[in-house]
Design a protein around this nucleic acid. Structure first.
Lengths: 135, 135
DNA sequence: GCTTGACCTTACCATCGTTGTAAGGTCTAG
DNA sequence: CTAGACCTTACAACGATGGTAAGGTCAAGC
């Protein structure tokens, strides 16, 4: 196993997280402070890049930074109970469900309104009428 | 028709938009500058509150401030073609669809992972395994 | 050795919609 | 006259990300 070093741009490419966000994650404490070259450049090794990939995958699934921090600490804890991970994921699914439900409610209401609107050159518009309703 | 006056708190209650946000909407130009009492308090009349309700309904459907500004100007334009309103709404539905799709993708992936995880006291966890994968 | 260009550094500001806070002025009821 | 509820402005924060600016560093080519 070589411990070849990456600078932040290479780590970004290898992990799929922008250099910008890597610095940000470090600043907010999601990542430990990277080691530096003499001239101050951040350096990353394979393990660091592995962690970055973990973060990206978590982010792609919509986990918040706080949740990702929890996932990372579970990941590092070799004695974690898998129930904790499952619970975290399940809670996130619930959050997703809630958001999806909200968006779906908006969508169906809007779809209903749109289907009522002629959509021609005349000014009459049930969409505006409904938005203007006092209900 | 009385033109009874509301102060910002009363307008907030009557419209369902917080006083805070009413000020914000004024600041960003979604609302015209409110008239003021001698002592500087903002005052609103029935028509203003009606507009605030319009904004709230639009917001409840997920329209952005920019879109609401467009809706408001269509609302005020008695010669608008309803096609413009319909198009705006349709574009928003498309945006909603896109977001819903993204969230659903996250949800189904997560659901799959969760269903693979025992969720007991043992540390083995396919959720973490997958997040840590190099793919 | 010097220049060029690509990279790195920090430190800001912007987005979007909303909330919170602080410090102060005003109004109204007791 | 005072207490408390309201109003005012101005600022910062959230969440994740992007942008910009001003400057230092590195590697390649001349």
């Amino acid at each position: 196993m070589h411990s070849e070093l990456y600078n932040i741009g290479q780590a970004a490419k290898a992990s799929g997280i922008s250099a910008k966000m890597i610095r940000h994650y470090e600043e907010v404490g999601l990542l430990p402070a990277a080691s530096r070259t003499l001239s101050g450049y951040r350096t990353y090794n394979h393990q660091d890049v592995h962690m970055l990939r973990f973060i990206r995958h978590s982010r792609d699934l919509g986990f918040s930074i706080k949740q990702i921090a929890d996932l990372l600490s579970l990941w590092r804890d070799m004695n974690r109970p898998s129930s904790k991970v499952k619970q975290l994921a399940t809670e996130h699914i619930e959050m997703l469900n809630q958001k999806i439900q909200e968006l779906n409610a908006m969508k169906s209401e809007l779809t209903r309104l749109v289907s009522c609107c002629h959509g021609d050159e005349r000014p009459d518009c049930p969409i505006l009428d409904e938005l203007a309703q006092d209900k």
